[in-house]
Design a protein around this nucleic acid. Structure first.
Lengths: 206, 206
DNA sequence: ACCTGAACACCGTTCAAGT
DNA sequence: ACCTGAACACCGTTCAAGT
């Protein structure tokens, strides 16, 4: 709070103010004008710091999704690493205050996040392209899951209660349903990868 | 073109005009004012026809995603029905001009779409709750896939070429990669459901 | 009743002074 | 150079006349 001045404004401050606004008042409250006001500055200087609004939102997404997953996955079996990695990514993406930011996340953030899993898969006997494909499959599944999950839970909170379709409503889910669904999907993916992967049979003396 | 008058305006006309605008100029061009202008009307009467902008977008999504899948899936083995249904849904969702509308689709549209698959699963020996869970799993996977796919392909079209990470970029995919990924995911889901489902062994005289 | 024009309270972005 | 106030071209939504 030493500098109430306006001249020494960093791109970092702008992104931070935007994130504060996001957390306090939601995605739609993040506007160039309101971010500027929060910084006690006119909107103009923001444009020289962060580009335009689109760029600012990209920067917010980059910040919120840096260090997506722990850099190390230990030395468990690759299948366990997949599970661990997918759950960590799921947890992390779910913590983002608005799923519209998840879809904005730029490629490189996911490339970074992929590295530990790809290492684990390579250690498990996957070739590089096999590891990349497997990682991509799991990553897309997790990201897709999070977006559907948040849209689904958001609709549930919104008004119109459906009259509880007998037999279960395929889309009306609560948090527990969603968690179970995630685990089931993950189990199937791991089983599929295991079936496709030439298991290291030498361990069993074959 | 008989009635250039403004009084007899139906909700249907508003939704249709919004869809035309969407197709011609994209999601961001759809505004209450521009839809009204296209109808030769002030913005005011729109509010009595379709509610507010949010409601209008919901109505657009409902219209674009009515009849999501063919009502009949034939009498193939349930596993083939899952594949057929998932591919039809994928194709259909991909044809929506903006994936932001896919996430707006209301529950009931998906409930409708679920019916033929649930019937096929029941015919294949699934109990009602099992069928609902299986359908939900596949549906979430497909919807999630489409949203990630469209974000991913959109980013590719946008500016910054990445310097082609050696070993393959886990997120930088083209249409062929995406299609292969979809088929792989679908294959794993079907295999997983098959493994979990108590196969009708009586057919084999067991 | 139901429309229109005008208004209100916002946007993103840029221009023209000001220091 | 780099800020601010004002402006421009839009929004969604509502109000106050008008017919």
């Amino acid at each position: 709070m030493i500098s109430l001045a306006a001249a020494d404004l960093e791109a970092d401050d702008v992104v931070r103010a935007a994130i504060e606004l996001l957390n306090e008042e939601g995605f739609d409250a993040v506007s160039m004008r309101r971010v500027a006001a929060r910084l006690g500055v006119s909107p103009v200087p923001l444009y020289s710091r962060v580009g335009n609004k689109d760029d600012l939102l990209d920067a917010v997404a980059d910040r919120l999704l840096a260090d997506l997953v722990p850099a190390e996955l230990g030395h468990a079996h690759w299948a366990d690493c997949v599970g661990q990695w997918a759950r960590a990514l799921h947890e992390r993406l779910r913590s983002v205050p608005d799923s519209r930011l998840v879809l904005r996340t730029r490629r490189w953030a996911f490339v970074d996040a992929s590295r530990p899993l790809i290492d684990a898969l390579r250690a498990g006997g996957f070739t590089e392209p096999e590891a990349v494909r497997a990682c991509r499959l799991v990553m897309w599944s997790v990201i897709g899951f999070v977006t559907v999950e948040s849209a689904s839970l958001a609709e549930r909170r919104g008004g119109h209660r459906s009259p509880s379709v007998p037999g279960g409503d395929p889309a009306g889910v609560d948090q527990a349903d969603a968690d179970a669904l995630f685990e089931q999907q993950l189990r199937y993916l791991i089983a599929g990868l295991t079936a496709d992967h030439p298991t290291d049979l030498s361990k069993f003396g074959i």
